[in-house]
Design a binder for these strands. Structure first.
Lengths: 180, 180
DNA sequence: GACCGCATGTAACCGGTTACATGATTGC
DNA sequence: GCAATCATGTAACCGGTTACATGCGGTC
Protein backbone atom coordinates (compact mmCIF):
# COMPACT_ATOMS: atom_id res chain seq x y z
CA UNK A 1 0.00 0.00 0.00
CA UNK A 2 2.77 2.42 0.91
CA UNK A 3 4.75 2.04 -2.30
CA UNK A 4 2.09 4.12 -4.01
CA UNK A 5 2.34 6.74 -1.28
CA UNK A 6 6.12 6.79 -1.61
CA UNK A 7 5.74 7.41 -5.35
CA UNK A 8 3.14 10.14 -4.81
CA UNK A 9 5.34 11.77 -2.15
CA UNK A 10 8.33 11.98 -4.49
CA UNK A 11 6.31 13.17 -7.47
CA UNK A 12 4.42 15.74 -5.36
CA UNK A 13 7.67 17.70 -5.06
CA UNK A 14 8.29 17.87 -8.80
CA UNK A 15 7.64 15.74 -11.89
CA UNK A 16 9.71 12.56 -12.05
CA UNK A 17 10.03 9.49 -14.27
CA UNK A 18 10.20 5.87 -13.21
CA UNK A 19 13.90 5.93 -13.89
CA UNK A 20 14.44 8.98 -11.66
CA UNK A 21 12.56 7.31 -8.83
CA UNK A 22 14.38 4.00 -9.19
CA UNK A 23 17.71 5.78 -8.90
CA UNK A 24 16.58 7.66 -5.81
CA UNK A 25 15.45 4.38 -4.25
CA UNK A 26 18.88 2.96 -5.00
CA UNK A 27 21.04 5.60 -3.40
CA UNK A 28 19.37 8.36 -1.39
CA UNK A 29 16.30 6.64 -0.10
CA UNK A 30 17.55 3.14 0.54
CA UNK A 31 17.19 3.69 4.29
CA UNK A 32 13.57 4.94 4.00
CA UNK A 33 12.01 3.06 1.15
CA UNK A 34 13.16 1.02 -1.81
CA UNK A 35 11.67 -0.72 -4.80
CA UNK A 36 13.08 -2.26 -7.94
CA UNK A 37 12.42 -0.60 -11.32
CA UNK A 38 10.27 -3.59 -12.27
CA UNK A 39 7.90 -2.74 -9.47
CA UNK A 40 8.01 1.03 -9.99
CA UNK A 41 7.09 1.19 -13.69
CA UNK A 42 3.82 -0.76 -13.59
CA UNK A 43 2.78 0.99 -10.37
CA UNK A 44 3.23 4.41 -11.99
CA UNK A 45 1.10 3.30 -14.91
CA UNK A 46 -1.62 2.13 -12.53
CA UNK A 47 -1.53 5.43 -10.60
CA UNK A 48 -1.88 7.31 -13.89
CA UNK A 49 -4.77 5.06 -14.97
CA UNK A 50 -6.51 5.84 -11.66
CA UNK A 51 -6.03 9.58 -12.14
CA UNK A 52 -3.61 10.15 -9.24
CA UNK A 53 -0.77 10.95 -11.65
CA UNK A 54 -0.67 12.46 -15.12
CA UNK A 55 2.00 11.74 -17.73
CA UNK A 56 3.41 15.04 -19.01
CA UNK A 57 4.66 14.51 -22.56
CA UNK A 58 7.52 12.21 -23.41
CA UNK A 59 11.20 13.07 -23.01
CA UNK A 60 14.25 11.79 -24.92
CA UNK A 61 14.87 8.01 -25.01
CA UNK A 62 11.26 7.21 -24.23
CA UNK A 63 11.42 9.00 -20.91
CA UNK A 64 7.99 9.43 -19.25
CA UNK A 65 7.78 12.11 -16.57
CA UNK A 66 4.71 12.01 -14.33
CA UNK A 67 3.24 14.84 -12.32
CA UNK A 68 0.78 14.62 -9.45
CA UNK A 69 -2.89 15.52 -9.95
CA UNK A 70 -5.28 17.25 -7.55
CA UNK A 71 -6.76 13.84 -6.80
CA UNK A 72 -3.28 12.47 -6.11
CA UNK A 73 -2.63 15.27 -3.62
CA UNK A 74 -5.97 14.64 -1.94
CA UNK A 75 -5.17 10.92 -1.63
CA UNK A 76 -1.74 11.65 -0.15
CA UNK A 77 -3.15 14.07 2.44
CA UNK A 78 -5.86 11.61 3.38
CA UNK A 79 -3.32 8.84 3.87
CA UNK A 80 -1.24 11.12 6.10
CA UNK A 81 -4.11 12.26 8.28
CA UNK A 82 -6.47 9.30 8.51
CA UNK A 83 -4.14 6.30 8.77
CA UNK A 84 -1.34 5.70 11.24
CA UNK A 85 2.17 4.59 10.35
CA UNK A 86 3.13 0.92 10.26
CA UNK A 87 6.12 0.50 12.58
CA UNK A 88 7.09 -3.08 11.82
CA UNK A 89 10.62 -3.29 10.50
CA UNK A 90 13.25 -5.72 9.35
CA UNK A 91 16.89 -4.97 10.12
CA UNK A 92 19.40 -7.61 9.16
CA UNK A 93 22.32 -5.94 10.94
CA UNK A 94 20.53 -6.20 14.28
CA UNK A 95 19.12 -9.64 13.53
CA UNK A 96 22.61 -10.94 12.83
CA UNK A 97 24.05 -9.40 15.98
CA UNK A 98 21.66 -11.54 18.05
CA UNK A 99 23.42 -14.59 16.59
CA UNK A 100 27.02 -13.40 17.06
CA UNK A 101 27.58 -15.57 20.12
CA UNK A 102 27.78 -18.51 17.70
CA UNK A 103 30.94 -17.16 16.04
CA UNK A 104 34.51 -16.85 17.28
CA UNK A 105 35.07 -13.26 18.53
CA UNK A 106 37.32 -12.39 15.55
CA UNK A 107 34.54 -13.23 13.10
CA UNK A 108 31.99 -11.31 15.16
CA UNK A 109 34.23 -8.27 15.13
CA UNK A 110 34.89 -8.57 11.42
CA UNK A 111 31.13 -8.43 10.86
CA UNK A 112 30.76 -5.40 13.14
CA UNK A 113 33.62 -3.57 11.43
CA UNK A 114 32.00 -4.14 8.04
CA UNK A 115 28.72 -2.76 9.35
CA UNK A 116 30.44 0.26 10.88
CA UNK A 117 32.09 1.08 7.59
CA UNK A 118 28.85 0.68 5.64
CA UNK A 119 26.94 2.98 7.96
CA UNK A 120 29.70 5.58 7.95
CA UNK A 121 29.63 5.78 4.17
CA UNK A 122 25.84 6.17 4.16
CA UNK A 123 26.12 8.84 6.84
CA UNK A 124 28.50 10.89 4.72
CA UNK A 125 26.12 10.69 1.76
CA UNK A 126 23.15 11.71 3.87
CA UNK A 127 24.96 14.73 5.29
CA UNK A 128 25.86 15.88 1.79
CA UNK A 129 22.20 15.71 0.79
CA UNK A 130 21.22 17.75 3.82
CA UNK A 131 23.67 20.49 2.82
CA UNK A 132 22.18 20.64 -0.67
CA UNK A 133 18.68 21.51 0.57
CA UNK A 134 17.12 24.89 -0.19
CA UNK A 135 15.10 25.63 2.95
CA UNK A 136 13.12 28.38 1.28
CA UNK A 137 11.18 25.61 -0.48
CA UNK A 138 8.48 23.95 1.66
CA UNK A 139 9.19 20.49 0.22
CA UNK A 140 12.87 20.83 1.16
CA UNK A 141 11.91 21.80 4.70
CA UNK A 142 10.02 18.49 4.96
CA UNK A 143 12.93 16.66 3.34
CA UNK A 144 15.13 18.09 6.09
CA UNK A 145 12.96 16.32 8.66
CA UNK A 146 13.36 13.03 6.81
CA UNK A 147 17.09 13.38 6.25
CA UNK A 148 17.67 14.42 9.85
CA UNK A 149 15.89 11.27 11.04
CA UNK A 150 18.09 9.21 8.74
CA UNK A 151 21.24 10.97 9.91
CA UNK A 152 20.44 10.47 13.58
CA UNK A 153 19.71 6.80 13.03
CA UNK A 154 22.97 6.33 11.14
CA UNK A 155 24.91 8.14 13.85
CA UNK A 156 23.28 5.80 16.37
CA UNK A 157 24.32 2.79 14.30
CA UNK A 158 27.96 3.89 13.81
CA UNK A 159 28.45 4.68 17.50
CA UNK A 160 26.75 1.38 18.33
CA UNK A 161 29.10 -0.55 16.04
CA UNK A 162 32.15 1.05 17.68
CA UNK A 163 30.81 0.18 21.11
CA UNK A 164 29.93 -3.35 20.01
CA UNK A 165 33.46 -4.03 18.70
CA UNK A 166 34.89 -3.00 22.08
CA UNK A 167 32.28 -5.02 23.92
CA UNK A 168 32.99 -8.21 21.99
CA UNK A 169 36.66 -7.76 22.88
CA UNK A 170 35.75 -8.20 26.56
CA UNK A 171 33.82 -11.45 26.01
CA UNK A 172 35.41 -14.41 27.79
CA UNK A 173 36.56 -17.17 25.45
CA UNK A 174 36.18 -19.85 28.05
CA UNK A 175 35.76 -23.61 28.20
CA UNK A 176 32.09 -23.33 27.27
CA UNK A 177 32.98 -21.67 24.00
CA UNK A 178 30.19 -22.84 21.69
CA UNK A 179 32.40 -22.57 18.62
CA UNK A 180 34.88 -25.22 19.59
CA UNK B 1 15.63 -16.02 2.97
CA UNK B 2 16.26 -14.32 6.29
CA UNK B 3 13.06 -15.42 7.98
CA UNK B 4 14.56 -18.88 8.27
CA UNK B 5 17.72 -17.40 9.76
CA UNK B 6 15.66 -15.38 12.23
CA UNK B 7 13.90 -18.57 13.32
CA UNK B 8 17.17 -20.48 13.63
CA UNK B 9 18.72 -17.61 15.60
CA UNK B 10 15.90 -17.59 18.15
CA UNK B 11 15.77 -21.37 18.48
CA UNK B 12 19.56 -21.65 18.74
CA UNK B 13 19.32 -19.98 22.17
CA UNK B 14 16.77 -22.44 23.53
CA UNK B 15 13.88 -24.57 22.25
CA UNK B 16 10.86 -22.55 21.18
CA UNK B 17 7.48 -23.20 19.61
CA UNK B 18 5.85 -21.31 16.75
CA UNK B 19 3.62 -19.59 19.25
CA UNK B 20 6.58 -18.41 21.35
CA UNK B 21 8.27 -17.00 18.29
CA UNK B 22 5.14 -15.28 17.01
CA UNK B 23 4.74 -13.49 20.33
CA UNK B 24 8.36 -12.40 20.33
CA UNK B 25 7.92 -11.03 16.82
CA UNK B 26 4.89 -9.12 18.04
CA UNK B 27 6.40 -7.36 21.00
CA UNK B 28 10.13 -7.62 21.60
CA UNK B 29 11.44 -8.04 18.09
CA UNK B 30 9.10 -5.85 16.10
CA UNK B 31 11.96 -3.42 15.42
CA UNK B 32 14.32 -6.17 14.18
CA UNK B 33 12.19 -8.73 12.44
CA UNK B 34 8.55 -9.67 12.31
CA UNK B 35 6.37 -12.35 10.78
CA UNK B 36 2.79 -13.41 11.23
CA UNK B 37 2.03 -16.79 12.83
CA UNK B 38 0.68 -18.00 9.49
CA UNK B 39 4.14 -17.58 8.02
CA UNK B 40 6.03 -18.93 11.02
CA UNK B 41 4.27 -22.29 11.43
CA UNK B 42 4.78 -23.68 7.90
CA UNK B 43 8.37 -22.38 7.84
CA UNK B 44 9.20 -24.23 11.06
CA UNK B 45 7.76 -27.39 9.57
CA UNK B 46 9.88 -26.95 6.46
CA UNK B 47 13.03 -26.35 8.55
CA UNK B 48 12.29 -29.53 10.49
CA UNK B 49 11.71 -31.48 7.27
CA UNK B 50 15.10 -30.28 6.00
CA UNK B 51 16.80 -31.36 9.22
CA UNK B 52 17.76 -27.89 10.48
CA UNK B 53 15.32 -28.18 13.39
CA UNK B 54 14.02 -31.12 15.37
CA UNK B 55 10.65 -31.26 17.12
CA UNK B 56 11.13 -32.28 20.74
CA UNK B 57 7.97 -34.00 21.95
CA UNK B 58 4.66 -32.25 22.21
CA UNK B 59 3.63 -29.93 25.07
CA UNK B 60 0.16 -29.14 26.46
CA UNK B 61 -2.50 -27.80 24.06
CA UNK B 62 -0.76 -29.22 21.02
CA UNK B 63 2.34 -27.11 21.67
CA UNK B 64 5.31 -28.09 19.45
CA UNK B 65 8.72 -26.98 20.71
CA UNK B 66 11.58 -27.14 18.21
CA UNK B 67 15.28 -27.31 18.95
CA UNK B 68 18.15 -26.61 16.59
CA UNK B 69 20.20 -29.44 15.10
CA UNK B 70 23.92 -29.57 14.36
CA UNK B 71 23.09 -28.98 10.72
CA UNK B 72 20.96 -25.99 11.70
CA UNK B 73 23.87 -24.49 13.62
CA UNK B 74 26.19 -25.08 10.68
CA UNK B 75 23.75 -23.36 8.32
CA UNK B 76 23.41 -20.36 10.65
CA UNK B 77 27.17 -19.95 11.00
CA UNK B 78 27.63 -20.21 7.27
CA UNK B 79 24.99 -17.54 6.65
CA UNK B 80 26.72 -15.24 9.14
CA UNK B 81 30.20 -15.65 7.70
CA UNK B 82 29.74 -16.11 3.97
CA UNK B 83 26.92 -13.68 3.12
CA UNK B 84 26.68 -9.98 3.84
CA UNK B 85 23.72 -8.21 5.38
CA UNK B 86 20.98 -6.70 3.25
CA UNK B 87 20.68 -3.05 4.27
CA UNK B 88 17.57 -2.03 2.37
CA UNK B 89 14.87 -0.82 4.70
CA UNK B 90 11.37 0.56 4.79
CA UNK B 91 10.49 3.12 7.44
CA UNK B 92 7.04 4.63 7.24
CA UNK B 93 7.70 7.27 9.90
CA UNK B 94 10.50 8.77 7.82
CA UNK B 95 8.66 8.30 4.54
CA UNK B 96 5.71 10.25 5.91
CA UNK B 97 7.88 13.03 7.23
CA UNK B 98 9.07 13.73 3.67
CA UNK B 99 5.43 14.54 2.82
CA UNK B 100 4.63 16.74 5.83
CA UNK B 101 4.96 19.96 3.86
CA UNK B 102 1.57 19.07 2.34
CA UNK B 103 -0.20 19.35 5.70
CA UNK B 104 -1.04 22.37 7.86
CA UNK B 105 1.64 22.64 10.62
CA UNK B 106 -0.82 21.54 13.34
CA UNK B 107 -1.46 18.25 11.56
CA UNK B 108 2.25 17.73 10.92
CA UNK B 109 2.96 18.25 14.61
CA UNK B 110 0.12 15.93 15.64
CA UNK B 111 1.75 13.22 13.54
CA UNK B 112 5.18 13.86 15.06
CA UNK B 113 3.79 13.82 18.60
CA UNK B 114 2.15 10.45 17.94
CA UNK B 115 5.45 9.06 16.63
CA UNK B 116 7.35 10.44 19.62
CA UNK B 117 4.97 8.74 22.01
CA UNK B 118 5.14 5.45 20.14
CA UNK B 119 8.93 5.39 20.14
CA UNK B 120 9.09 6.36 23.83
CA UNK B 121 6.91 3.42 24.78
CA UNK B 122 9.05 1.00 22.74
CA UNK B 123 12.19 2.47 24.29
CA UNK B 124 10.89 1.75 27.80
CA UNK B 125 10.13 -1.85 26.81
CA UNK B 126 13.54 -2.35 25.26
CA UNK B 127 15.34 -1.00 28.33
CA UNK B 128 13.41 -3.38 30.55
CA UNK B 129 14.52 -6.30 28.37
CA UNK B 130 18.12 -5.18 28.61
CA UNK B 131 17.92 -5.19 32.41
CA UNK B 132 16.59 -8.75 32.39
CA UNK B 133 19.63 -10.19 30.58
CA UNK B 134 21.98 -12.62 32.31
CA UNK B 135 25.38 -11.68 30.91
CA UNK B 136 26.99 -14.87 32.13
CA UNK B 137 25.19 -16.60 29.24
CA UNK B 138 26.87 -16.19 25.82
CA UNK B 139 23.53 -15.89 23.99
CA UNK B 140 22.49 -13.07 26.32
CA UNK B 141 25.75 -11.26 25.64
CA UNK B 142 24.87 -11.29 21.93
CA UNK B 143 21.29 -10.26 22.74
CA UNK B 144 22.79 -7.25 24.54
CA UNK B 145 24.39 -6.17 21.27
CA UNK B 146 21.05 -6.40 19.49
CA UNK B 147 19.06 -4.67 22.20
CA UNK B 148 21.63 -1.90 22.52
CA UNK B 149 21.35 -1.22 18.78
CA UNK B 150 17.58 -1.06 19.12
CA UNK B 151 17.81 1.24 22.14
CA UNK B 152 20.18 3.66 20.42
CA UNK B 153 17.99 3.81 17.35
CA UNK B 154 14.90 4.45 19.45
CA UNK B 155 16.72 7.17 21.39
CA UNK B 156 17.68 8.73 18.06
CA UNK B 157 14.05 8.62 16.92
CA UNK B 158 12.61 10.14 20.10
CA UNK B 159 15.12 12.99 20.18
CA UNK B 160 14.50 13.50 16.45
CA UNK B 161 10.74 13.72 16.98
CA UNK B 162 11.20 16.36 19.71
CA UNK B 163 13.48 18.35 17.45
CA UNK B 164 11.10 17.97 14.50
CA UNK B 165 8.12 19.30 16.48
CA UNK B 166 10.12 22.41 17.38
CA UNK B 167 11.35 22.76 13.81
CA UNK B 168 7.87 22.60 12.31
CA UNK B 169 6.85 25.37 14.74
CA UNK B 170 9.33 27.70 13.02
CA UNK B 171 7.99 26.99 9.49
CA UNK B 172 6.52 30.10 7.88
CA UNK B 173 2.81 29.79 7.06
CA UNK B 174 2.98 32.29 4.26
CA UNK B 175 1.05 33.18 1.13
CA UNK B 176 2.49 30.17 -0.69
CA UNK B 177 0.98 27.83 1.85
CA UNK B 178 0.28 24.70 -0.23
CA UNK B 179 -2.55 23.61 2.06
CA UNK B 180 -4.88 26.53 1.39
C1' DG C 1 31.05 1.16 -35.03
C1' DA C 2 31.26 -0.42 -30.36
C1' DC C 3 30.18 0.37 -25.87
C1' DC C 4 28.10 2.45 -21.92
C1' DG C 5 24.35 4.45 -19.50
C1' DC C 6 19.49 5.85 -20.10
C1' DA C 7 14.90 4.18 -20.12
C1' DT C 8 10.90 1.06 -19.99
C1' DG C 9 8.88 -3.00 -19.65
C1' DT C 10 6.88 -8.54 -19.14
C1' DA C 11 6.54 -13.17 -16.89
C1' DA C 12 7.51 -16.42 -13.47
C1' DC C 13 8.30 -16.92 -9.00
C1' DC C 14 8.75 -16.32 -4.02
C1' DG C 15 7.89 -14.06 0.41
C1' DG C 16 4.36 -12.11 3.32
C1' DT C 17 -0.53 -10.80 4.56
C1' DT C 18 -5.49 -11.51 5.16
C1' DA C 19 -9.36 -14.20 5.94
C1' DC C 20 -10.87 -18.17 7.81
C1' DA C 21 -10.99 -22.49 10.72
C1' DT C 22 -10.35 -25.47 14.72
C1' DG C 23 -9.64 -27.24 19.24
C1' DA C 24 -7.57 -27.26 24.16
C1' DT C 25 -7.00 -25.16 28.75
C1' DT C 26 -7.45 -21.59 32.32
C1' DG C 27 -9.85 -18.10 35.03
C1' DC C 28 -14.08 -15.80 36.29
C1' DG D 1 -21.05 -22.14 31.49
C1' DC D 2 -18.54 -18.51 29.01
C1' DA D 3 -14.84 -15.74 27.62
C1' DA D 4 -10.09 -15.19 27.05
C1' DT D 5 -5.86 -16.99 25.89
C1' DC D 6 -3.05 -20.74 24.17
C1' DA D 7 -1.85 -23.10 20.03
C1' DT D 8 -1.67 -24.62 15.17
C1' DG D 9 -2.89 -24.52 10.80
C1' DT D 10 -4.88 -23.86 5.26
C1' DA D 11 -6.05 -21.14 1.06
C1' DA D 12 -6.38 -17.12 -1.56
C1' DC D 13 -4.30 -13.15 -2.49
C1' DC D 14 -1.07 -9.33 -2.91
C1' DG D 15 3.45 -7.13 -2.73
C1' DG D 16 8.22 -7.62 -4.13
C1' DT D 17 12.20 -10.00 -6.50
C1' DT D 18 14.61 -12.32 -10.28
C1' DA D 19 15.42 -13.33 -14.91
C1' DC D 20 14.92 -11.77 -19.24
C1' DA D 21 14.06 -8.49 -23.24
C1' DT D 22 14.29 -4.29 -25.98
C1' DG D 23 15.58 0.08 -27.98
C1' DC D 24 17.56 4.94 -27.82
C1' DG D 25 21.37 8.51 -27.41
C1' DG D 26 25.93 10.07 -26.30
C1' DT D 27 30.96 9.32 -26.27
C1' DC D 28 35.48 7.28 -27.50
Amino acid sequence: MSLRMALLTLISVEPRSGYDISREFDDVLKFVWHAKPTQVYPELKRLAAEGLLRQRGEGPRGRRPYQITEEGLRTLREWLTTTSADHSQRNETILRSFALWLLPPEDAQAFLREEMEYHRVRLRGMRALKKALDLRRPADRAALLGLEAGIRRLEAMTSWAEWAIDTVATWPHDADDPTR
